[in-house]
Design a protein around this nucleic acid. Structure first.
Lengths: 303, 303
DNA sequence: GATCATTACTTGACTTTGGCAAGTATTATC
DNA sequence: GATAATACTTGCCAAAGTCAAGTAATGATC
């Protein structure tokens, strides 16, 4: 059986090979990969041996000898540290810095060659992907951005219409008319919504939109829940519950007596959530809509 | 000065470290990383030594000795191949397969631990990123999908509105009203466009939308070019020119006498493209629109 | 302020890794 | 049927890397 961990393992194998190609005789310098990495770390500002040993997880004995070798070749200066006389302060000599500059140039050239087969679009995607991986796998990774429920902003209208259209097409086979309907609803909301009695929340992490929920006014006593959706990848995190609570809470605070909503029988997860939160189903009607046979349901909750 | 190649280099360093952590004594098996990789390749179905040597870029001499070692330890069976008697067919013994299963289990456990800190959304992003990197950097990578100019489909309406809204907000400081206007135009097009006299093209690579261009009817003699845009990452590939040619070509074939368009002075790249393709500017009018002071331009070409 | 533990290295002794070149048997190619 | 190429194998060797023990300095504890 396939496990998601295998995806990570496959990538590790892939990138191990990728790096292996750069390996033997680091950039034709006659240095090993390890030596090159050590020199790079000094160039990069590491000033003592144990830092480097830890960062690259190298044996200190081996490192010690490599550093002695560098010193002998005139690439490295070592001075006993003033703060801590056990340590040596490491710094490159002119020759060392010169060599490093050469190596960096060569490494850049290699990287450029790799990138040459890619156009701008692919390159952007590649870099974005690399950043994602680094931020996900770094042990010091900043705790992932919190999911916030924010107000609607530029770009959301179209994005929500698009995602509703695509997801309902994929999951329920809806045709284009559904996207148009959603667009109409969104336009109407933007142009005419009552700022205090109506509100939309976008669930977002950073600039990634995960879902939406709207509360709109039917009359002074009745609010309507609309455009509730969650991206498939964001399901199962309790986010739907949080959004629903927020929306019901707003309707309560605003003074509505009840909240209604329309949905379809096939949305089982959503229906379960409505029921759990105190909604009851008022009616179920077979209809043909958006190119599909559906059972439309009306739900209500007293606030 | 920073070069984009440095992004790749930094990622290589990052992942080298990442892999280095798995390195010494491969998963506590007493095997080196290389040995572990070799065993894995046999498990994975490689049946002869030169295949493995090539895949892992290892020395054949070294490989030969490692395989001899495995055989001695009872992990590996080697039989002279029937098709080619220079080769040996490699396969794991029961003991070898058992060890491999253990190692895979251990490796999975490690991978799971890594992934445990991530939630579903982040994991999805991580896997998508890994796939991107593999497909970009694989030497055998399928030549990147071609950019096609396709018809409009479900999800495009909202997506285009959103991207127009966001890009114009970012690049020109436009306010929300622009996204609403674009949405109206798109809705109108979807609902009422003349199937033979009007047309939209979406520039897309796979499921990634790169830009759009529309040709709509003003009257029997006059076509109008609308909603021409390119994602920033897709600029400089000659794609704009291709889209413009396609659009003008369609207007010609359809029997229009001329094509008009509206744009703003600040869109210098687009204006240059229009001029290059035979458009002339008819008028320039200062206006206040979308929250900005703009110079609106009308352009025309005789077909 | 003496003692013990820890850190930052160094050194010696050793094993493993893996590169290079030369050799053998087999197969492909012209 | 000669020549070239492939699929290994073997010997030789240097470099890479490990392990354990040692020194000197610092930090922690009572």
């Amino acid at each position: 059986m396939f496990e998601s961990a295998d995806t990570l393992r496959a990538f590790n194998r892939f990138y191990t090979r990728q790096i292996g190609l750069l390996d033997r005789s680091y950039l034709d310098s006659g240095m090993s990969l390890s030596q090159g990495r050590i020199l790079y770390e000094i160039h990069d500002g590491k000033t003592n041996a144990s830092q480097i040993a830890q960062h690259l997880s190298l044996d200190e004995g081996y490192l010690s000898r490599v550093l002695a070798g560098f010193t002998k070749q005139g690439l490295l200066k070592r001075q006993p540290s003033k703060e801590d006389r056990r340590r040596s302060d490491l710094s490159l000599t002119k020759a060392g810095a010169g060599l490093m500059a050469q190596l960096i140039e060569r490494s850049r050239k290699g990287a450029k060659e790799r990138l040459a087969t890619l156009d701008t679009v692919e390159r952007e995607k590649l870099f974005a992907a690399m950043e994602t991986i680094q931020s996900c796998l770094s042990p010091e990774k900043p705790p992932s951005l919190p999911v916030e429920l924010r107000d609607i902003q530029i770009g959301d209208l179209g994005h929500l219409a698009s995602r509703h259209g695509v997801l309902y097409a994929k999951e329920c086979g809806f045709d284009q008319s559904f996207e148009l309907l959603v667009t109409d609803i969104l336009l109407e909301f933007w142009r005419n919504h009552h700022p205090r009695k109506e509100r939309a929340w976008i669930a977002a992490r950073g600039d990634q939109v995960l879902g939406s929920i709207f509360c709109v006014r039917i009359d002074d006593q009745t609010a309507k829940l609309r455009l509730f959706h969650l991206e498939p990848t964001a399901r199962g995190l309790g986010l739907g519950q949080r959004m629903l609570e927020t929306c019901i809470g707003f309707a309560c605070d605003t003074g509505y007596q009840r909240m209604v909503l329309w949905t379809h029988e096939s949305h089982e997860a959503a229906c379960a959530l409505y029921r759990k939160n105190g909604f009851t189903m008022l009616s179920a009607t077979p209809v043909h809509n958006f190119g599909q046979d559906l059972v439309e349901q009306a739900w209500q909750i007293n606030l």
